[in-house]
Computed example of a mutant assay.
Amino acid sequence: MPNALVVFYSLDGDVRFLARTLAKELVLDSMELELVKPHPTHGFMKYFKGGLLAATGATPPLRPLAHDAAHYDLLFVGTPVWNSRPTPAVRTFLKSADLKGKRVAFFTSYGDNDVKTYRVLTSLVPGAKVVGHIGFKLPLKMDKEQCSADLVRWAKDLLNS
């Protein structure tokens, strides 16, 4: 079984729930990305700033990382979808990590859809092999047990391939 890391950013908790479930069920290391200057969590600015930063491709600085991606063969990267794009924190991580030769799989949480998000995520990991992606519509509001089961089954397939 490959040495794998779960890397994620979560503002409202959906991706955090998915990532922690994945790490716990498959006994994987995990790392939550944290911005040096936290993103607004309430009100108009939460959506306006988030959407604007995602659309412009912003890469705000992250707090020091708990794990070095270079030590892993496979990375599961989780992000909410903001304005049809990955979050700025995930963009920063992907642009700064050397993932050449690594296997990368993406999981998302979205309110509308995540079709464009995968194209953007894939473009951020040149030299890596994107081995899969899966998305969940509002897992904490919909069926979190089913989302968890689908995520773990998907990840197990990737780990065993």
Rank of each mutant, 00 (worst) to 15 (best):
K95T: 14
V15P: 05
K24N: 14
S10F: 07
E34W: 01
G43P: 06
K46Q: 15
L99W: 01
D98Y: 06
L99Y: 06
F136E: 04
K141T: 02
R16W: 04
D68G: 11
A58R: 10
R103P: 08
K100C: 13
L28G: 04
K116M: 14
G51H: 00
F93P: 02
P88V: 08
H133R: 15
V77D: 01
V15F: 09
K100H: 02
V125R: 09
C147L: 02
L65G: 05
T79E: 04
E32I: 01
G127S: 11
D29L: 00
L33E: 03
V120N: 07
T108L: 13
G132H: 01
F76H: 03
H39L: 03
V131S: 06
L26F: 02
D98T: 03
T56H: 08
R91T: 15
L28H: 05
I134H: 11
D114Q: 07
M31A: 05
P126W: 06
W82R: 05
A19Q: 03
K46S: 12
K37N: 15
R85Q: 15
C147Y: 01
M142A: 07
L124W: 02
T92E: 05
L28M: 10
L28F: 10
P86H: 00
V130P: 06
P60W: 09
L138T: 13
V125F: 02
T92A: 01
G135S: 09
L53M: 15
Q146Y: 00
T117L: 08
E25S: 09
F93V: 07
P40V: 12
L28A: 08
V36D: 07
P64D: 13
E25H: 09
H39I: 13
C147I: 03
A19T: 06
P80K: 06
V131K: 05
S10G: 08
V104S: 04
C147E: 06
L94M: 11
T92G: 13
V125Q: 09
L74Y: 00
D14H: 15
R91M: 12
P139R: 11
L138E: 09
L33R: 05
K141H: 07
H67E: 08
F136G: 06
R91K: 11
A89S: 04
A69Q: 02
V130C: 12
F136K: 08
G111T: 10
A55Q: 07
D112I: 13
Y9D: 05
G43F: 03
A54H: 04
R20T: 10
K95H: 13
